[in-house]
Simulated assay, not measured.
Amino acid sequence: MNRVNKLKTWTIGYTFVLPALLYMLLLVGYPIIDNVRLGFQNVDMSNFIQSDHQFVGFQNYIDLFKDGTILRTLFNTVVYTVLCIALQFVIGISLALFFNQKFALASRLRGLVMISWLIPATITAMVFKYMFALDGGIINNALMSLHLINAPIGWLVQPELAMLSLVIANTWIGIPFNMILLTTGLTTIPKDIYESASIDGANAIQRFFRLTLPLLRPAILSLLVLGFIYTFKVFELVVIMTKGGPVNSTEMMSTFAYKMSFDQFQFSQGAAVANIMFIVLLIVGFWYFRVVHKEEVS
């Protein structure tokens, strides 16, 4: 009878899991596998409708690295991701510590901060594009009214400033996500620990670096990995605000893959760029699971 109950439980469990499993296999697993296949073939606009495509091995990847643009886009994506994650984390943990204090408007202000995360990325990109506009942009008008600059700055037409503009826009989106996860982590830390540390003479800075950060390590690790994945595959902000320019200074892996596939119709090379992105994110994912497994074992 016990074996029958176990079989019944197993059947019910897998029955509930089956729809999600089929969804992942059809809409996630199959596109990934087919994209890997496409990266090893020669598929462009001239032979797209043909059923039999030439197998070229790693030639698409070799051509990408010979051209050099893939290295520039990879560098841009890494720099953009690191800057965004660093700013989001610093501001996010500052807000988390602030809202963790008990005062009258804490919950309402915390909910207000969440608005930037709830707004669709396309809307945010359009808003920041007009804010950083050369003529009539809010940023230039504000800086000129404060007499910090004498003439409007071309935020989106200068390479370094264009990247900075994207980082600021994405940071504004990601701050609430960091704040909420870190606030949740702070609520799990017992207050008695801080009281004991205060009695022992630890000041606020010592309590933060020796208690708060170590106890928040699991939440911080998850936050950084998720932030890396979400930020590394940025698309909407770049397409709307800079279109990868000027002179490829803000070209990211995702936008480069899109342009190769749907602007230049080099479908195989576009797939190869996407596969490189997938490998990078897969490595980050495996590293995260390895670290988490070591912590659980220890």
Rank of each mutant, 00 (worst) to 15 (best):
V28R: 11
A104R: 11
A106M: 07
K129R: 10
I283Q: 03
M241C: 11
V239Q: 13
V36D: 04
L109E: 03
A121N: 11
I70H: 00
F232H: 03
L226A: 04
M24C: 07
G245L: 02
I32T: 15
L221T: 13
L26Q: 00
L237C: 12
G68W: 00
F48N: 14
I240S: 06
A162G: 05
I123L: 11
G285S: 15
I240N: 02
K294Q: 07
L148S: 10
L87I: 14
G185H: 08
R72D: 00
I139M: 05
I49D: 09
L181F: 08
I240K: 03
A151W: 08
M131L: 15
Y14Q: 06
R72W: 00
Y61W: 14
V90P: 03
Y130Q: 13
V273W: 01
W155R: 10
I276G: 01
T122P: 05
E195D: 15
N275M: 14
F128V: 02
L182Y: 06
T81M: 11
R217F: 09
Q269V: 02
I175T: 05
I93L: 01
S298G: 12
I62Q: 07
Q54G: 10
V292M: 14
F262R: 09
R3S: 11
A151P: 00
Y130T: 09
F103A: 05
R290Y: 09
Q88N: 08
S107W: 09
G227E: 08
A86I: 15
I193H: 05
Q266Y: 06
K191D: 09
F208T: 08
A133R: 07
Y230H: 04
F232P: 03
A202Q: 01
N100P: 04
P31N: 14
L97T: 02
Q88V: 06
V113A: 02
L64F: 01
Q269I: 01
L226D: 02
L282D: 05
V90D: 04
H293M: 06
L164Q: 03
T231S: 09
R210D: 12
T255V: 09
H147K: 14
M253W: 00
T242S: 08
N47H: 13
I153R: 09
M179P: 02
T255D: 01
D44A: 14
Y30G: 03
N76T: 00
G68A: 00
S249P: 00
D52A: 15
V239M: 13
Y14T: 11
I279K: 05
L25Y: 03
N141Y: 15
G92W: 06
Q266K: 11
N275H: 05
L112C: 07
V56I: 15
L118M: 09
L148T: 13
Y23D: 05
D34R: 12
F278M: 13
L97H: 06
R110H: 07
V273L: 04
L156V: 07
S254Y: 13
R110C: 07
D200L: 14
A133M: 12
N47E: 09
V127H: 06
T255A: 05
M126N: 12
E195W: 06
G137W: 06
A142D: 02
Y130V: 11
I199R: 05
L226Q: 03
A197S: 15
T81C: 02
